[in-house]
Measured scan of single mutants.
Amino acid sequence: KRYRAVYDYSAADEDEVSFQDGDTIVNVQQIDDGWMYGTVERTGDTGMLPANYVEAI
């Protein structure tokens, strides 16, 4: 699945990823209600991200 960031996010922990509004997130997997795991296409960084900061595309 592919998602697009709708807000900027700065990683708060080493297992999270930072991204900017408009970034595409690929290979996304749902972890639980609030978190997903995926790769930021622009940077190649992979990690956890907050589900409410992205939307499906």
Score class of each variant (00 low, 15 high):
residue 5 A to V: 05
residue 40 V to L: 03
residue 44 G to E: 04
residue 54 V to P: 01
residue 15 D to A: 13
residue 40 V to I: 08
residue 30 Q to M: 13
residue 53 Y to S: 12
residue 48 M to N: 08
residue 53 Y to G: 08
residue 52 N to C: 14
residue 38 G to V: 03
residue 35 W to N: 04
residue 29 Q to T: 14
residue 57 I to N: 05
residue 13 D to R: 15
residue 35 W to F: 06
residue 23 D to G: 00
residue 47 G to T: 01
residue 34 G to S: 13
residue 21 D to V: 15
residue 40 V to H: 03
residue 11 A to I: 03
residue 21 D to W: 15
residue 49 L to A: 04
residue 31 I to A: 08
residue 11 A to T: 05
residue 53 Y to M: 12
residue 8 D to F: 08
residue 6 V to E: 05
residue 4 R to P: 05
residue 54 V to L: 11
residue 53 Y to W: 07
residue 28 V to M: 06
residue 21 D to M: 15
residue 3 Y to C: 06
residue 16 E to L: 05
residue 4 R to Y: 09
residue 11 A to E: 03
residue 33 D to R: 10
residue 15 D to T: 15
residue 17 V to S: 01
residue 24 T to G: 05
residue 26 V to M: 09
residue 11 A to H: 04
residue 41 E to W: 07
residue 43 T to M: 03
residue 26 V to G: 06
residue 56 A to R: 10
residue 42 R to E: 05
residue 6 V to M: 13
residue 10 S to Y: 13
residue 20 Q to G: 06
residue 57 I to Y: 10
residue 56 A to C: 10
residue 21 D to H: 15
residue 41 E to C: 12
residue 42 R to P: 03
residue 53 Y to L: 12
residue 27 N to G: 08
residue 52 N to V: 11
residue 45 D to T: 08
residue 49 L to W: 04
residue 13 D to N: 15
residue 4 R to E: 06
residue 44 G to C: 07
residue 56 A to T: 08
residue 12 A to Y: 09
residue 20 Q to I: 14
residue 35 W to Y: 07
residue 33 D to S: 11
residue 52 N to H: 12
residue 27 N to Q: 09
residue 53 Y to H: 09
residue 55 E to V: 15
residue 33 D to Q: 11
residue 51 A to E: 07
residue 8 D to C: 12
residue 50 P to H: 08
residue 6 V to Q: 09
residue 52 N to L: 11
residue 4 R to N: 07
residue 7 Y to R: 15
residue 40 V to K: 00
residue 9 Y to C: 05
residue 1 K to V: 14
residue 54 V to Q: 00
residue 34 G to L: 14
residue 11 A to P: 06
residue 6 V to K: 14
residue 12 A to D: 07
residue 46 T to D: 04
residue 53 Y to N: 05
residue 3 Y to K: 01
residue 45 D to S: 10
residue 16 E to M: 08
residue 11 A to K: 09
residue 45 D to H: 12
residue 44 G to F: 04
residue 29 Q to K: 14
residue 1 K to G: 13
residue 28 V to H: 04
residue 24 T to V: 15
residue 1 K to F: 12
residue 47 G to F: 03
residue 56 A to K: 10
residue 32 D to Q: 10
residue 20 Q to F: 13
residue 6 V to S: 07
residue 12 A to F: 09
residue 30 Q to E: 12
residue 17 V to F: 05
residue 7 Y to C: 15
residue 48 M to Y: 14
residue 11 A to Q: 06
residue 18 S to C: 05
residue 12 A to P: 05
residue 42 R to N: 05
residue 38 G to D: 00
residue 36 M to G: 01
residue 36 M to I: 11
residue 25 I to T: 01
residue 41 E to T: 07
residue 39 T to M: 08
residue 49 L to H: 01
residue 44 G to I: 00
residue 16 E to P: 00
residue 24 T to W: 14
residue 2 R to G: 08
residue 2 R to Q: 11
residue 22 G to Q: 05
residue 5 A to P: 02
residue 32 D to W: 11
residue 52 N to Y: 09
residue 42 R to S: 06
residue 19 F to D: 01
residue 39 T to L: 06
residue 16 E to G: 09
residue 43 T to Q: 02
residue 3 Y to H: 03
residue 18 S to Y: 02
residue 20 Q to R: 14
residue 21 D to E: 15
residue 34 G to Y: 15
residue 37 Y to T: 07
residue 15 D to E: 11
residue 1 K to A: 12
residue 24 T to H: 10
residue 51 A to F: 08
residue 41 E to L: 13
residue 28 V to I: 08
residue 18 S to K: 02
residue 18 S to E: 04
residue 23 D to N: 03
residue 10 S to E: 13
residue 43 T to A: 02
residue 22 G to S: 05
residue 2 R to M: 11
residue 22 G to A: 04
residue 25 I to E: 01
residue 26 V to H: 07
residue 39 T to F: 04
residue 48 M to D: 02
residue 32 D to H: 12
residue 31 I to Y: 10
residue 43 T to P: 03
residue 27 N to Y: 08
residue 39 T to Q: 08
residue 21 D to Q: 15
residue 36 M to A: 05
residue 14 E to I: 12
residue 8 D to W: 08
residue 1 K to Q: 13
residue 50 P to N: 07
residue 2 R to L: 12
residue 37 Y to K: 09
residue 9 Y to A: 00
residue 54 V to M: 06
residue 45 D to C: 14
residue 38 G to Y: 02
residue 55 E to P: 02
residue 7 Y to A: 15
residue 32 D to P: 06
residue 35 W to E: 02
residue 31 I to K: 08
residue 42 R to D: 03
residue 5 A to M: 00
residue 50 P to C: 07
residue 5 A to W: 03
residue 55 E to R: 11
residue 35 W to S: 04
residue 9 Y to H: 05
residue 2 R to D: 10
residue 13 D to P: 02
residue 23 D to S: 02
residue 55 E to L: 11
residue 36 M to T: 03
residue 43 T to I: 02
residue 48 M to Q: 06
residue 32 D to L: 11
residue 41 E to H: 07
residue 44 G to Y: 04
residue 14 E to M: 11
residue 18 S to G: 06
residue 46 T to Q: 09
residue 17 V to A: 05
residue 9 Y to R: 05
residue 11 A to R: 07
residue 28 V to Y: 04
residue 57 I to P: 03
residue 54 V to E: 00
residue 12 A to T: 12
residue 57 I to A: 07
residue 8 D to K: 09
residue 12 A to W: 08
residue 10 S to F: 14
residue 49 L to R: 01
residue 24 T to Y: 15
residue 10 S to A: 12
residue 49 L to D: 00
residue 28 V to E: 03
residue 56 A to N: 09
residue 18 S to V: 03
residue 40 V to A: 02
residue 32 D to A: 13
residue 35 W to R: 08
residue 39 T to P: 01
residue 20 Q to M: 13
residue 43 T to W: 01
residue 24 T to C: 12
residue 38 G to A: 05
residue 42 R to K: 07
residue 25 I to D: 00
residue 46 T to A: 08
residue 37 Y to N: 05
residue 1 K to P: 12
residue 52 N to W: 10
residue 39 T to W: 04
residue 37 Y to G: 02
residue 13 D to T: 15
residue 5 A to C: 08
residue 23 D to E: 04
residue 2 R to K: 13
residue 52 N to A: 14
residue 5 A to E: 02
residue 6 V to A: 06
residue 46 T to M: 08
residue 31 I to N: 06
residue 29 Q to M: 13
residue 6 V to Y: 07
residue 18 S to R: 02
residue 13 D to F: 12
residue 33 D to N: 11
residue 32 D to M: 13
residue 28 V to P: 04
residue 2 R to T: 14
residue 35 W to H: 05
residue 18 S to Q: 02
residue 25 I to M: 05
residue 46 T to H: 09
residue 57 I to E: 09
residue 28 V to C: 12
residue 34 G to P: 03
residue 47 G to K: 00
residue 29 Q to P: 01
residue 44 G to S: 05
residue 32 D to I: 12
residue 15 D to K: 14
residue 49 L to V: 11
residue 21 D to P: 11
residue 10 S to Q: 14
residue 54 V to K: 01
residue 57 I to Q: 08
residue 14 E to G: 10
residue 46 T to I: 07
residue 24 T to K: 06
residue 17 V to G: 00
residue 8 D to P: 14
residue 8 D to N: 11
residue 57 I to R: 04
residue 50 P to D: 04
residue 3 Y to T: 01
residue 29 Q to R: 12
residue 12 A to N: 12
residue 53 Y to Q: 05
residue 21 D to N: 15
residue 25 I to N: 03
residue 5 A to D: 03
residue 7 Y to F: 12
residue 5 A to L: 01
residue 39 T to S: 05
residue 8 D to G: 11
residue 17 V to P: 02
residue 16 E to C: 09
residue 43 T to E: 01
residue 15 D to R: 14
residue 34 G to N: 15
residue 34 G to D: 15
residue 1 K to D: 13
residue 2 R to F: 08
residue 38 G to W: 03
residue 55 E to S: 09
residue 35 W to G: 02
residue 39 T to I: 05
residue 32 D to R: 15
residue 15 D to F: 14
residue 24 T to M: 13
residue 47 G to N: 01
residue 53 Y to P: 00
residue 22 G to F: 04
residue 44 G to W: 06
residue 16 E to I: 04
residue 37 Y to V: 09
residue 13 D to K: 15
residue 52 N to T: 11
residue 8 D to M: 08
residue 55 E to H: 09
residue 48 M to G: 03
residue 7 Y to P: 00
residue 3 Y to N: 00
residue 48 M to H: 07
residue 47 G to H: 03
residue 22 G to R: 04
residue 16 E to Y: 10
residue 28 V to N: 02
residue 54 V to Y: 01
residue 35 W to A: 03
residue 31 I to F: 10
residue 1 K to Y: 11
residue 57 I to H: 07
residue 26 V to N: 07
residue 32 D to F: 13
residue 6 V to N: 09
residue 49 L to K: 01
residue 31 I to L: 12
residue 49 L to P: 00
residue 5 A to N: 01
residue 42 R to I: 04
residue 44 G to N: 07
residue 23 D to L: 03
residue 53 Y to T: 07
residue 34 G to M: 15
residue 53 Y to C: 12
residue 12 A to Q: 15
residue 11 A to F: 03
residue 42 R to M: 04
residue 9 Y to G: 00
residue 14 E to D: 13
residue 25 I to C: 04
residue 12 A to G: 10
residue 23 D to Q: 01
residue 40 V to N: 08
residue 24 T to E: 10
residue 8 D to R: 08
residue 50 P to E: 02
residue 10 S to M: 13
residue 34 G to R: 14
residue 30 Q to K: 11
residue 56 A to G: 08
residue 42 R to Y: 04
